[in-house]
Nucleic acid binder design. Sequence first.
RNA 1: GCCUCCGUAGCUCAGCUGGAUAGAGCAUCGGCCUUCUAAUCCGACGGUCGCAGGUUCGAAUCCUGCCGGGGGCGCCA
Length: 557
Amino acid sequence: MTPEQLASTVVDVLSALVEEGALSLPDGVPASVGVERSRQKEHGDYASNVAMQLAKKAGTNPRALAALIKERLEAAPGVAKVDIAGPGFLNITVDAGAQAGVAAEIVAAGESYGHTRVLAGQRINVEFISANPTGPLHLGHTRWAVLGDAIGRVLSAAGAEVTREFYINDRGVQMNHFAASIIAAALGEPTPENGYAGGYIDDLAKAVEAAQPGIFALPPGERLEAVREVAYAIQLKEQQDTLEGFHTHFDVWFSERSLHDSGSVPETLQRLKDLGHVYEQDGALWMRTTDFGDDKDRVLIKSDGELTYFASDTAYYLNKRARGFDHCIYLLGADHHGYVGRLRAMAACVGDDPAQTLDVMIGQLVKILRDGEELKLSKRAGTIVTLTELADEIGVDALRYSLARYPADSPLTLDVAEITKASNDNPVYYVQYAHARTCRMAENAADLGMTLPGADSFDPSLLTHERDGELARALAEFPRVVASAAELRQPHRIARYLEATASVFNKWYDTKECRMLPQGDEPVTPTNEARLVLVHATRTVLANGLGLLGVTAPERM
RNA sequence: GCCUCCGUAGCUCAGCUGGAUAGAGCAUCGGCCUUCUAAUCCGACGGUCGCAGGUUCGAAUCCUGCCGGGGGCGCCA
């Protein structure tokens, strides 16, 4: 008996009541009703507020409606008891022996347990990080690397067809500033104005020279472009390697230049003109984004003839749409939230409904404390904390998990000492440890010659202890958690769920009556083997959940 | 000034598409290791959910105003 089954049972009861005329619902029977795990055991295993929500429409009072539902629901298979409480809650107690049945389904589903079809048919593009290829990825990119990657994984698990994309800002004056900075470093000259400083520039100068000896001796006319291209390739490769090492995979690395080379930008401008959303003023070309809620119109071509970044953005958006994406998710830092209005307006200008096709997520910035002091980054001064340094110091798993367990819109302060601590202070290890424990238990069981019952031989009715039921209910919750994380784009829900589930598992483990292994010389009983199914199911859920966050699930710790 | 995010226990934060007595970890204090991994588990302590109104059977959650903090408001990229 899973919550989904219970919810559909309640819907069936409502339908039957309507059919018999015992109940009248002008808006029809809802397709789904709320059924949640009860927080307190006096409230049964599951609770539903459906009677309170439908009472007004049905022209009755909540408790009376609840009584109608209770009578039918109690007769349903798997339901042991229904109580009406408070203003009209239905507190449902499930048959003790029926709950663990889900464990065999979980084991059978394996890696696909938790996958649903709630977003099936949707083609989603998730764009994140999109840094300039003019330096290493740093602290500021780390949160988006984790969240974007996790969102991609979660959306896939919910059945969406997902492409994770990195937009390379490889066009524009910053590329020349970048090259000029490297040349200056190679020649021992001071950093040029608007240039980049820092040790990595010196390192790049050496790497560029190594890649193409004599490049800095080229005539100044050719040198800038030559250095720019070599350094670009090296820096981009470095970013790509860094992200792969951080378990963050991109399906598409999209070059801004390619939009211009392919003629997409002029085509886009022409299309906007045809649609009547651009005008010329003060020698510049503007998009009238204010028609669609932006606070001011935006420049597409500057009066000096240069295209703006926004012109590329628009062409890029159309490119994504032309590739067949129904939803374009953008993950942006809080320092870019001013872009939201113009992005929406831009989508509206090209004829889309931004509420349908655009999903701009604004994430708040992260502060990292070391010894009570904030790690600051200043590009101008050339002091940056790179993603690689952070991952080396904190560990990929701990860093990823620590960032993934908070919603994107909460500003965050992480203490290096706290998230590197290999103890219970750190939830990532708590969850990983619980997983390792399940692995060890399975090994012990195998050593004793215990066999894992299959779906046909597994007897859930042997698992009637309160803790067995608790654990089974927690495990049964996983698919709904993944689905809601996907729909709300909130992967932190997975992390919180894993912590709670690991806790339920540990409590179960510490319950003497729920021992999985036989004690001493006792023979292996069917109950022992039934519990082994529960252990394997727990292992599956923890491993799948950690996987959705891009965190490893070690077998030993 | 306008826009936006945040304000919940001593600390770091969940909970927010309205539900029952507001949760977790840390910290503090106190318990359980001859039996599956004690990185576990059990208990105690700890809160005017920033403030004030409103909406309703019911508000930490939705609406309005105010207070406090972060970020943003370029023909920059």
